[in-house]
Amino acid sequence: MNKSVFLGALTVAGLAAVGASASTLDDIKARGKINCGVTEGTLGFSSRDAEGKHGGFDVEFCRALGAAIFNDTEAVEYVELSSKNRFTALSAGQVDLLYRTTTWTFSRDVDLKTTFVGINYYDGQGFMVPKDLGVASAKELEGATVCIETGTTTELNLADFFRANGMTYEPLPVGGTTEAKAFFEEGACDVYTTDASALAGVRASLKAPDSYIILPEIVSKEPLGPTVRHGDDQWADIVRWVQNALVAAEEHGVTSANVAELSKGTENPSINRLLGAEGSLGEMLGLDNDYAARAIAAVGNYGEIFEKTIGESTPIGLPRGLNALWTEGGLQYSPPFR
């Protein structure tokens, strides 16, 4: 038994190297599908609906890639990964990229041999507590038991936050959101901590959302974004610029409704280059010239995606905040298309 596990581990390592050597885009075209790593179920970001179809903020970006490469938003295979096994799955070639609420950190970028190609959501770690605990600030959590999903940056931030404030706590590390929710609702822990965006989704899915509050402190920077393997710059460029195209579309007022009209050609050369009416930016990526127009037509621009999946009109109800365009006081900004 031990021996076969050993051989299995060696095989995985062997496969990883094979996966990294071929061009990811060629692999995807041969396969006819993009393997997109998403969360196991974070309401708003990636979860299954009643028919088992994936939907959510991260899923829309995977769909945009499907539209850009294959002109088919359904040409995506969603692979649900836990926090723990996401990087192993990526480096072993099981998925082509992660749109999996993954925080961009130095050591992940450098040491884990992954490449972060953008930030689709600026997040931060927050705390949720039951209202009747009478806690108004995270600074009052001395000695509390904290439910935490294992294998995430949150456990490192948590340790740092409590150490910086000279407080102690009892971590209760849990494998997945489902267990963590059960423990939290039954009071096996006082506090539930994760990224504030996911916290809003978890709160919305609790039995009595109104009896819980999210504390005002945001204790970390959590830039979430797509992740690819080291070593395939063409694929990294495609993922980066499809996402940038969606942001640029919002900057220029291109929406899913008017993209067909605008891509025939406008007075604005920036829009023309973005949508492929001028220049050959798409071909430089190894795609068709109208890749961005197809993606925008299929899923909408960044703002449209935000509003329909996690925005204030949805049960998640997240404000744009840091994720507003730079012109509106946020941080979302696309490098120029030229």
Binding site: A9, K84, S91, D111, K113, T150, T152, L172, E179
Partner: peptide, 27 residues
């Protein structure tokens, strides 16, 4: 590891593996 008891698999094979990215060594 399934219920949050920090045994060898949760520390070495869990958090440590995940934070350092040393799958082969940890396993």
């Amino acid at each position: 590891v399934a219920i949050g008891y920090m045994d060898l698999v949760s520390t070495l094979g869990g958090i440590t593996l995940n934070q350092t990215g040393r799958e082969m060594e940890a396993i």
